[in-house]
Nucleic acid binder design. Sequence first.
DNA 1: CACCAGGCAAGTA
DNA 2: TACTTGCATGGT
Length: 210
Amino acid sequence: MKILDLYDRLAKHYGPSGWWPGQTSLEIIVGAVLTQNTAWKNVEKALTNLKEAGVLDINALYNISHEGLASLIRPSGYYNIKAERLKNLISTIMETSGDNLDDFLDEEANTLRERLLFVKGIGKETADSICCYGAGKLIFVVDAYTKRILKRHGVIESTWDYDQIKGLFESRLPNSIQVYKDLHAYMVFIGKEFCKASSPKCDACPLKDW
DNA sequence: CACCAGGCAAGTA
DNA sequence: TACTTGCATGGT
């Protein structure tokens, strides 16, 4: 099957992806919000600021002011709206599980996903990143690169929506969290390097004759 | 200088 | 359903 072959080729080409770079589950979920439409390098600066200020902590994030939070995450861009989104997420965690993030994440996969999607500012990609990388759930993360790559290889039509593409991967991949994590990362690697919207470099692409 | 980065929500037609 | 726009910093 094509999707399995896709994983095999990329795993051989790249090896372990190293994603998600976060150390703790809290760092991963905060990073998931901060990286929305933003380069990871800028997210790292924001995360460093949060750590140095001692607020990479559920209670601290719950108690910090909007202005204080916004100023710390400034390097990751969209700082006002992201401060709001982080506050919304932290509030939902507090209301659901108190300050126990592990309890919040230790929930049936689709229940967790729906709780996350209910939060204003958490869309499908961010929710699924939190489920997959933060909570270790077998939920495949779809992004714009993945859609473009599959479309260019004739696997899908442009009418396919997010959940259809997610379902395609989940129905074809083995039940391995490591496979889910690495394959999404590989799709981003390929998208950035070889499958850009303008000036794609198909000659050098590892998926040339996939 | 232009363009992109590991999106989302709200508004319009 | 399918576009369009605002949100904002930092790297290439």
